[in-house]
Simulated scan of single mutants.
Amino acid sequence: MNKFSKEVRQLLEYVGGKENIAAVTHCVTRMRFVLNNPQKADVEKIERIKVVKGTFTQAGQFQVIIGNEVATFYNEFVKNADIEGVSKETVKKAGRQNMNFLQRLISHLGEIFSPLIPAIIVGGLILGFRNIIGDIKLLEGGTKSLIEVSQFWAGVHQFLWLIGEAIFFFLPVGITWSISKKWGQLKFWGLF
């Protein structure tokens, strides 16, 4: 006997049955469903299942929070429901069917720009540090900045300009690389 057989049958029934499931996968703590008709899912009954910690809908996916044992629960679920699990990317693409035009547009833009966010943050931090050492007058009674007193910090100040601006200078290349990655093309084509 499986550990979650009763809960698996309940969840399958409450999401609207096998016919209502377009795609299913899981992440670290959640089952991720793309439902053909999201209104068929009985959220109140699902949340009363013993192993379910909560539910929510995001990015066209109906997500059921199971917790640390989600992998075991998921394996039993797909076996009991006689459906094939899919990858997270497939579920993400299938979930777009439940989004309106504006949500789909924002989702696409998010997938393009989210890989670039760390570079933008680092570039901003570098330029911010550069401004602190070059523009804030803290030394000699508030009349001189660090670069006006130290040759070393003046060199660091100029070097940081190169690094900080390079990130923003090459941002269009990063955007085209990210677009080509999203479209499934060779990332090399994003350089042109």
Rank of each mutant, 00 (worst) to 15 (best):
A22Y: 07
T25V: 06
L12Y: 12
L171Q: 01
F77A: 08
K79W: 00
M99S: 07
I175T: 07
S180H: 15
P38G: 05
K79V: 02
Q97T: 11
I120W: 05
E7Q: 13
Y14Q: 12
A23P: 04
A154V: 01
P38A: 04
E76Y: 04
G16S: 11
G17T: 14
Q10L: 14
I46S: 01
L127R: 14
W189S: 14
N75Y: 00
F192W: 15
I121V: 15
V24S: 02
F33Y: 15
C27P: 01
F73I: 05
R32E: 04
E19F: 00
E7R: 09
E89V: 15
L139E: 09
N2Y: 03
K6C: 00
D82S: 10
G60M: 06
L11P: 07
I121Q: 05
P115C: 10
I126A: 01
V156Y: 03
T55C: 10
I46T: 10
W153V: 07
Y14S: 02
V173H: 12
K181G: 07
F56D: 09
L160P: 03
Q61G: 04
T90Y: 13
Q39H: 05
I175P: 03
I83V: 14
L146P: 00
F170R: 00
R30F: 04
Q39A: 12
L127C: 01
K144E: 11
M1V: 03
W177L: 15
F56I: 14
Q10W: 09
W153A: 09
T57Y: 07
D42P: 03
S114E: 12
I132R: 00
H26M: 03
D82L: 03
K137L: 04
R130N: 12
Q103A: 15
A22K: 07
A119D: 08
K88Q: 09
F129M: 08
I83Y: 04
R9I: 03
L109P: 00
E47N: 15
I167M: 10
A23N: 06
K92V: 14
F129H: 00
F33W: 11
F168P: 08
E44W: 00
I136H: 04
L35M: 08
I112Y: 01
C27R: 03
Q97V: 13
Q158L: 12
I126Q: 02
I167K: 01
P172L: 10
K92H: 10
K137E: 02
I106G: 09
F169W: 13
G85I: 11
W161K: 15
L125M: 12
D135L: 10
F4A: 04
V149C: 05
D135Q: 11
G85K: 12
R32H: 04
G124D: 01
R32N: 00
F192P: 01
L11R: 08
G110F: 07
E7C: 05
K50T: 11
N80C: 08
I133Y: 05
L125A: 09
S87W: 06
T55I: 06
G124C: 03
I120C: 06
Q151G: 08
V91F: 10
G174C: 10
Q61S: 08
V173S: 13
I126P: 02
L162A: 15
F188G: 06
I133S: 05
I117S: 09
I65R: 01
W153E: 11
V91P: 09
I167G: 06
K40I: 05
E69W: 00
